[in-house]
């Protein structure tokens, strides 16, 4: 019983920590006492902790059950959009199933690694980052049991002496860092695809966060986001029903005022200017003169080759999420996905 409650409180800490991507680290007492400052030496006590947490992140019928069910829909959106744009770019015959193969993908706020693992199985070279060290440990622990993910932690040599059966080429790596630190270290234009799913509603400074994510995308690359719209319906479903009434997720997981509407994301990228190559500082990016990611709006909606929003709808009687239809703003009143492409220039 005690173990369960301590795991729960640690979990709450994890959620809170997820909100801190773009701000300075505010280490809680819990972090200081349990998480070693260096990722290289982790003691057995930690393993016990992480294992308990891991069973929560990967308990498909528990706290993160809804997220597990949502995951295939997010992957579907990524795949469909990449396929669509590949045709748009003039490619005529390619294997749609293998559209992610060989791409460098960044998963910002990877949590337990749900999306990172899926994208890796589809052939992507995925880097999952999270501001929470415990999340990274959980994701690493889980990925290490799956030979198809070619998981290697930075410090662990990838062993080839067992007959590993996977035929995919993807590889997953996890790192305890923030998107800002990664940008400072790797520089802009590093990834073909940047994903940040169910993170935006947890960050304190969404504009800064979006700037950093956008800067990491290569020209012609893709940015995928998913979040929750700030509507009464969203309040009713994600806070009142999911947290208070049915306790699908821990109360306090969501904060209504942090929800972001599709129109706000569209407007952000309508005005957003990529930083000029000569100036890599993210702070001055808005002063750049390069073309906006969304060049024009038609009745408030972007062109489908530049950006798109799609609703994600939970169908309770089927117990599954479905991707909403194209161009149907009503379906985007709660959970929705957003895609935008970085212009080549």
């Amino acid at each position: 019983m005690r173990n369960l409650s301590s795991a729960r409180s640690l979990l709450r800490a994890v959620w809170t920590r997820r909100a801190l991507h773009s701000t300075a680290y505010r280490h809680t007492a819990l972090d200081n006492s349990h998480v070693a400052s260096s990722s290289s030496t982790v003691n057995p006590d930690e393993i016990a902790h992480f294992s308990r947490l891991s069973s929560l992140w990967w308990d498909e019928r528990g706290e993160f059950g809804m997220l597990h069910k949502m995951n295939p829909v997010r992957t579907q959106f990524v795949q469909e959009k990449l396929v669509e744009m590949k045709y748009e770019d003039g490619h005529e015959s390619f294997d749609e199933q293998r559209v992610l193969e060989g791409l460098n993908v960044l998963d910002v706020g990877c949590g337990g690694g749900l999306l990172s693992e899926s994208l890796t199985r589809l052939g992507a070279n995925t880097l999952g980052i999270d501001a929470s060290l415990s999340n990274i440990a959980i994701a690493s622990l889980h990925a290490s049991s799956d030979p198809a993910l070619s998981f290697s932690s930075n410090s662990l040599p990838h062993s080839n002496d067992t007959a590993i059966s996977h035929k995919g080429k993807g590889k997953v790596t996890y790192e305890h860092t923030s998107v800002e630190e990664l940008l400072a270290r790797n520089g802009p234009n590093s990834f073909d695809v940047v994903c940040s799913m169910e993170v935006l509603e947890h960050v304190d400074n969404p504009r800064g966060f979006l700037h950093s994510c956008a800067a990491l995308v290569k020209p012609g690359g893709h940015l995928f986001l998913s979040t929750i719209a700030r509507t009464p319906l969203a309040y009713l479903l994600t806070i009142f029903t999911a947290e208070k009434l049915l306790r699908f997720v821990e109360p306090g997981t969501h904060t209504y005022s942090k929800y972001i509407n599709p129109s706000e994301l569209i407007s952000f990228f309508h005005h957003y200017r990529a930083p000029s190559p000569s100036n890599t500082s993210t702070k001055s990016s808005t002063e750049s003169t390069s073309q906006p990611w969304i060049s024009r709006l038609v009745a408030g909606r972007p062109l489908r080759v530049e950006a798109e929003t799609r609703g994600m709808i939970y169908v309770p009687w089927n117990g599954e999420w479905v991707l909403g239809p194209h161009n149907e703003p009503l379906t985007e009143a709660c959970n929705y996905l957003f895609w935008v492409r970085k212009p080549l220039q």
Binding site: V42, L141, S144, S153, S155, P157, D161, A163, S165
Partner: peptide, 21 residues
């Protein structure tokens, strides 16, 4: 380097002769 994150998998246990989907 022999530095080892403690999440080291035990899947390389000698008894496992085959990985399968």
């Amino acid at each position: 380097p022999q530095r080892c994150l403690a999440v080291s998998p035990k899947r390389f246990s000698h008894s496992i002769s085959d990985h399968c989907d």
